[in-house]
Design a protein around this nucleic acid. Structure first.
Lengths: 345, 345
DNA sequence: ATGAAAGCGCTAACAC
DNA sequence: GTGTTAGCGCTTTCAT
């Protein structure tokens, strides 16, 4: 594999000149530039990015640390982040923690400021203070995105989503459709219980003069099977419930399945609403009514904030707000029916 | 950020010694090791991985280049690959080409042998000869996984899946259930039409004395919406068809939706079978009967082959075969019914 | 067991 | 315009 100095030797110039034709073409005379280019072509030279990184003190790589790439939210996020990163001339390293906080810690500790110029942290359950500590003295921005709770908002840049509003919107929608007996499935990710969405839902109930009772709530791991279990448990406790609010689309998806398996029709017998609006929400049948969290905006804002901080050391830790969640009405919710349904459980 | 030499200075030793306590602990006297460790702790020192990489000529990073991280096959693959890589002390860079061959090319060209010690290429539609060329003279293994067709099998290591057998198994299953009017949806990914699966299906028909007619086949982009279109088109052409074979689970998923939307019941009216066995196949309702391609085995074999080649320069380009596809019977296929169904199209 | 020193491939002053 | 030179932070012989 050819190196800069080999190319230089062949072209009869020094490494500095070769480096310049590659990076500051205007600084070199056309005739020699041509000669150098010929040498580059002849040798098949390609710059060693590690060497360049060491020399520049900048790797042009950013890392994204996330809990579980299987959860469709993350691929959707990664796709956007990668696209933006690529446009801004950065490579993206995806670090999957398999939902183990310990692995996330190890990644941040090893990568931040050495392999990666910055890191984007998503729902890994590592506390803000600890992240600051892992980062150590290194000049390597870390941004948090879409966290359930951020403890030291002033010291760490992050992109916030109004989860509470999302819960409120979901609650209002069900109430407007006439639902009064509503089961709630609250997800729990690596970064904790999705309590803000629950509180938003509670707000909606309060507006209608109702209150949220714990017997109608199930706290469960944020996954398809969690949604299944939650729905079955709710239905078991109250066979007459007419709607289910899940704090996450994946849970809603699982709930839909469980109802289908139990012979309960959606939305004829029971309405279901989720939050997030992942691709699956559109694709499933019945298509899921949900509250969109604007994944694309979050991803775009997060990676841009990170890159801005990398490129401008003066850039202050910022808090970026994402456009408000929006209700996406699809086929899984409908008006309350009088008709008593058949329960095959 | 503290460097090796700062630590060395504080501990009153040289960089060589500090390096040794970190990497060859037995080469250094316990008492000095202790002193050095204290200095490391005091400074919060963490090795600069770029510097180490340049020095060692090895970055401990591998890249995986894939067409579309949104397609659930890839996250499932990545999760396994990342896990194995992590266990073997490598970082994984995920490079999403957004289905653009040009981007794949750029990634390989830039990364192979400089940022990454090796690269795993999945379905990017870049030809074998071109990959060899992009690699240039660099000592950086590239392995191909699960390609539809590999042109120079002797020159490039790859992990092969018996797609033809998968098609055969799917065909036999439908035939055994008594289906004779079968529509076929053939996917087309970045690496071309999934013709091997179609040929396997044709083999199954041949065993039953039948032949595959082009009027029963739809060639379509490998996606959910492709499956929808394909199914509608097939149903339109032959309202009496009793089964659909899709060369991919995502297509089968789309087909299932289209049928649901059209009021056609699965499997009562029409059976559907796919290939791959992604997670979604289990999760959807009705759960999808499919032919499992053993994603985990493919991922594991691919990444291990790549790392083996990185670590052993003598390792020859190998062809690794994956355990045979297996039929997974779930709820989307059933025996042919006499009863004429209602067609609401 | 430890130190000295060269070098990985590149960039960036600064000199000519 | 182009060359010289000094690093970037680490690893690794080779002496001692």
């Amino acid at each position: 594999m050819a190196t800069l100095s080999e190319v230089a030797q062949i072209a009869g110039v020094t490494t500095a000149t070769v480096s310049n034709v590659l990076r500051n073409p205007d600084k070199v005379k056309p005739s020699t530039a041509k000669r150098v280019k010929a040498a580059i072509a002849a040798t098949g030279y390609r710059p060693n990015l590690m060497a360049r990184a060491l020399s520049e003190g900048k790797s042009s790589m950013v890392a994204i640390v996330l809990p579980n790439i299987i959860n469709p939210y993350y691929p959707e996020f990664v796709r956007i982040a990668e696209r933006v990163a690529r446009q801004r001339k950065y490579f993206l390293m995806v670090c999957n923690t398999d939902e183990q906080t310990e692995i996330g810690r190890a990644y941040i500790k090893q990568i931040a400021g050495t392999l990666a110029d910055g890191v984007l942290v998503l729902h890994t359950g590592i506390s803000t203070s600890e992240i600051l500590e892992l980062k150590g003295g290194r000049r390597s921005p870390i941004v948090l995105a879409s966290e359930e709770t951020v403890v030291f908002p002033d010291t760490i840049p992050h992109v916030v989503v109004d989860f509470r509003l999302a819960g409120l919107i979901a609650g209002r929608h069900l109430l407007e459709l006439g639902h009064r007996r509503i089961g709630v499935i609250v997800g729990q990710g690596c970064d904790g219980i999705q309590h803000l969405r629950r509180e938003g839902f509670r707000d909606a109930l309060a507006e209608a003069g109702m209150s949220l009772e714990e017997k109608d709530v199930r706290y469960i791991l944020d996954s398809v099977s969690g949604g299944q279990q939650g729905a079955l448990s709710l239905l078991d406790a109250d066979p007459d419930l007419t709607a289910i609010f899940a704090t996450n689309d994946l849970l809603a998806y699982g709930a839909t399945q469980a109802l289908a398996d139990a012979g309960v029709r959606v939305p004829d017998d029971v309405s279901i609403i989720g939050i997030t609006d992942i691709q699956l929400a559109q694709d499933m049948r019945p298509a899921l009514t949900t509250v969109a969290l604007n994944i694309e905006d979050v991803a775009r804002a997060s990676i841009n904030l990170l890159l801005d901080m990398i490129e401008d050391p003066e850039h202050q830790p910022t808090l970026v707000r994402i456009p408000d969640p929006r209700l996406m009405v699809r086929a899984s919710t409908g008006c309350v029916r009088r008709k008593k349904r058949l329960v095959s459980a």
